[in-house]
Amino acid sequence: MPELIAKSALEGRTETLGPVTLAEVEVGPITSVALFPGGGKLAAKGLKALGLAMPGPNTFTGKKGARIVWTGRDQAFLIGVEPPALEGAALTDQTDGWTVLGLSGAGAVDVLARLVPLDLRLASCPVGTALRSQLNHMNAVILRTGDHAFEIMVFRSMARSAWHEIHAAMDMLAARAGTKF
């Protein structure tokens, strides 16, 4: 079989505007882990091999390279590693379905405040929070990865729209700061 070349949706685009940087992030494999009814214990055994456990609502755990993100009732995304043989849950490859955008810098929270109907300030959204919500009208999973850093997962088909919306918000904030960067 010929060697196929994987291409990301935005070809690794990066842009910095003032203090905020927007960049496409390469996160590796994404696998949906959806528990079968009563399958929690079996799945926990398989995840333990990776040093992970099913995360509680609105959280993610693990470090870069092997993270597990809550995405719904009895459902999580395993990111960064090939999934282990897992019983008690349905595994679905989602790698090509999502684009991950990293937003970092001191004004990142102000940028998202214009797009997301949630309080993303550190006090109510500490590092390790994973929220399913909307980025304007796009469904998104928003991860708080650092004091001034977010990762935003959107459907791959929405990648350029998401980039455009976030970039527009960054542009407005940069203009408001009084200086055109």
């Binding site: 609502p57 609105n58 719904g72 009732r73 109907p117 949630l118 929220l131 399913r132 919500s133 909307q134």
Partner: peptide, 11 residues
């Protein structure tokens, strides 16, 4: 009950 307090537009 899972996500917490959310805006009407999400529902």
């Amino acid at each position: 009950p899972l996500c917490g307090e959310r805006d009407r537009r999400e529902f």
